[in-house]
Design a protein around this nucleic acid. Structure first.
Lengths: 260, 260
DNA sequence: TAAGATTTGTTCGTATGTATC
DNA sequence: GGATACATACGAACAAATCTT
């Protein structure tokens, strides 16, 4: 392994730019070094003492840099012999969390989310027709059948909402297109969070439960039959009614909030 | 400000879960503390010495925790009197970068990206009809007119591709729906990166330039006229031809690669 | 301009924890 | 269980940035 001098050059920064601390600079340097070397998942990075020598920085600075890369999901670190830091793929879960931080401040409306869902989910449904094996299809049906009856308590109601979104997340997991799959999974998650945070499951809505369940069963049939057009149509229709019902819930919550 | 004991409790971890280092635990604790307190953008966090006391941890550990939060875009830190760490909104730019890390490993195809673009961009176009003021419309035209003539050099060709994607990013900036806007901006960026990385601008493609430019001019007209249906149709058509041409470029690159 | 106060930034030496052999 | 090879954590001292006077 080459041991070039990796000391970060004192790059000029534009007046507007915030000053970049050394740990940040080191993290950037390590990142581009990894890319240059063409390292990939699982490959080992130089150890702490090695880094200290290469970058001519103290242990503390190096460690802060490593924590930065770790927070972004780019490396993983283990102690002990054979330990050290390793290149790690960013997991879908972490990517969802990081992206979720961005939208945390944005106060998305149900309408915003469904505008995107209505455009994407039917495409996914169509692309999946005839592509799923029996195990996958059974897995979907298992999720649907977790709640064969209308909810009796508020807790059950909440669980039903979440299970219904889980159905879409499962569908997304099987997407051939990873971009499409990720986006749909992400939306299922923020809807899940919103539902819980804003208690969109209250008051109970039997209509939503009945329609949602029927659509999902029909959809699985169409997927099993390999009928892409039908799958797309069912999903499009499902999205439309779900949006209407969810916006209704959102309005109720707002009303409740104002009334207090 | 209350000074409760925030020492992280030694929470049991499941056998599968990787061990969480103290900086990570502290970062999580700070994050949920901020949420509990209802702090928002610009609010100040306790200083380093304060944190050291609250968490009963060393300075280094606290600092590593802060770097983790900083890497996620959740806080910003300044030195000097009146300095310290502050709650900061995650910028769109940072969110794009973090999400880009996830897809870095995934090797998306042009087809994958356009499957999503074809579903989303027409929606954006339609939603923007009649919504943009003259300044915004002129801004869009300025981008289009950066390259009124076909490229003469490879460098110009690359710049034209990127400017064309910038047009879409600008459009996305004006979206009323922040989710939709972010996603389209993100796709413009990864396409931009892919174009440069894989040299998808080579060989020069006059057809792509001519059609793209014509579509964009028509689109701005439709937006100015407030004709949503027309805007949607133009964008849908634009996406379809662009996908075809870009997949052609991708195939050429592949061929060139095999031939070598 | 200069000095002083405040707050983060960086270093180094040492000790401890953890996983492998 | 002991030796080894790693990361992890602590504390005290010093440096740098920035605001105020």
């Amino acid at each position: 392994m080459d041991a070039r001098d990796l000391t970060p050059r004192p790059t000029r920064r534009k007046p507007g730019e915030p000053r970049r601390s050394r740990p940040v600079q080191v993290a950037e340097a390590i990142k581009s070094w990894v890319v240059e070397q063409g390292l990939s998942k699982g490959d080992r990075l130089p150890g702490e003492t090695d880094m200290i020598a290469r970058f001519a920085m103290s242990k503390g600075t190096i460690r802060e840099a490593m924590r930065i890369l770790e927070a972004q999901g780019l490396i993983e670190t283990r102690t002990g012999p054979g330990g050290g830091s390793f290149v790690g793929e960013v997991s879908a879960e972490r990517a969802r969390a990081l992206l979720g931080n961005y939208f945390y401040f944005k106060n998305l409306s149900i309408r915003d989310i469904y505008e995107v869902r209505r455009a994407l989910e039917p495409e996914l449904a169509a692309s999946l027709a005839g592509q799923l094996d029996e195990a996958a299809l059974n897995g979907l049906e298992e999720v649907i059948n977790r709640y064969p009856e209308p909810a009796r308590t508020l807790d059950e109601e909440r669980e039903q909402h979440i299970a219904s979104l889980l159905f879409h997340a499962r569908l997304a997991d099987h997407a051939g297109n990873e971009l499409l799959g990720f986006l749909i999974g992400f939306m299922a998650q923020i809807l899940s969070d919103l539902t819980v945070d804003r208690q969109l499951y209250s008051p109970p809505n039997i209509e939503l439960w009945k329609r949602g369940r029927a659509y999902q069963l029909e959809l699985v049939d169409a997927l099993r039959a390999g009928d892409g057009k039908k799958a797309r149509a069912i999903m499009a229709s499902h999205m439309e009614t779900a949006q209407g019902l969810m916006e209704g819930q959102e309005a109720q919550v707002l009303k409740r909030f104002i009334a207090e």
